[in-house]
Simulated scan of single mutants.
Amino acid sequence: MQTLNLVNTDHVEFNAFTLFDTQDHQENNRKLALAEQLQTSLELNSILNIFAMEAARFVEFTGLYFKSDAISGEMRGSKLARKERLFELKINNRYIGTLSYAINKPMSLATFNKLKKLHKLLVHPLNNAMLYQQALSLAMQDGLTGLGNRRQYDQQLKRAMHHANRQGSKVGLIVCDLNKFKAVNDSFGHHIGDQVLINFANALSECVRDSESLFRFGGDEFAIIVEDACEQTLTIIESRIHHAVSCDTLLNNYKVSASLGSTLMTRIDNEDTLFERADSHLYQQKLKQPCRLSVI
């Protein structure tokens, strides 16, 4: 696909007088209706779908895409074309992302300028959607380790189990906690304890694939959701975790190891029973640990 890098670099400021500067009352009413519709959603793809209906009055395109550093989306049914026309979107001279049209025919300068004016109605709804998604991400993230938190775990486990039941596959769950972590916190303070947790989270991250999800519930409690799993998969991941922990210098210095409990879902499981069984296996593993000694 050939790309034409023609960008809009104008200083974009929201000004109602410039948005509705035409004497055509019907056109002004259309713009007002579009502005209202764009404010009805904080979902990026929905905003692009709404905007695409108006943009289609001025140009034929097979796809409409928005991309920023933090988020990307596209119009429903988007398809690539022979060329791409790019617009750089800004708010008060602050770059927010790139809007691109997939086109098969050249875009005239007049059309290009009409779309630039329409984009003034689009930039703030797009920015609101980006801020909303960022807030959602923070609400689902553990502040210390960057892993998913308990809220995200609950949502993802429910979705994964529902998908597995439809596909005839299984979800595996591994729960983890650290041995001697309380002794480290009590003896060396929370600063060292936090670093131990970060190192353990990093060790876990090295042991899973992109399709497997990591979470921290709080304290030293962690969980891994493994989709399309089998007993062998869980055994391999557990082996990797024990190896990664044993190779971590900081965890070794403070004599911290990990206990793991794992299980596979059954057809009668719900989210609670699956977790309870994995947690029970974790407890059995902790009972096998030698008596805890004070950290030296």
Rank of each mutant, 00 (worst) to 15 (best):
E221S: 10
F215Y: 15
N179K: 11
G143I: 01
L6C: 12
S169V: 03
E27Q: 12
G73P: 06
L4P: 00
G172I: 03
L287Q: 15
K114R: 14
G73E: 04
L48A: 06
S108F: 08
G189A: 08
A244C: 07
Q2A: 11
I192K: 09
N199Y: 12
V123E: 01
S294R: 14
S239F: 02
L19E: 06
H124I: 11
S280D: 09
K90F: 06
R150A: 06
I47N: 05
C207D: 05
L138R: 13
L147Y: 04
T235P: 02
G168K: 08
Y101I: 03
F58C: 01
F215H: 15
V256P: 08
V226H: 06
I103F: 12
F275E: 09
E60Q: 14
L264A: 12
G172V: 06
M53L: 04
E84T: 15
V196T: 10
H281V: 06
F215V: 09
N45R: 04
G63E: 07
E212F: 07
D220F: 04
M53K: 13
Q167D: 10
Q167P: 01
N128K: 13
F217K: 12
K286R: 15
N93P: 08
K288C: 14
R85E: 14
S294W: 13
L138I: 02
L99D: 07
N8R: 02
L234R: 05
D228M: 03
E43P: 00
F14L: 09
V123A: 02
Y254L: 12
I296E: 15
R30S: 02
G219T: 10
N28C: 13
A55Y: 01
L214A: 10
E271M: 07
T235C: 11
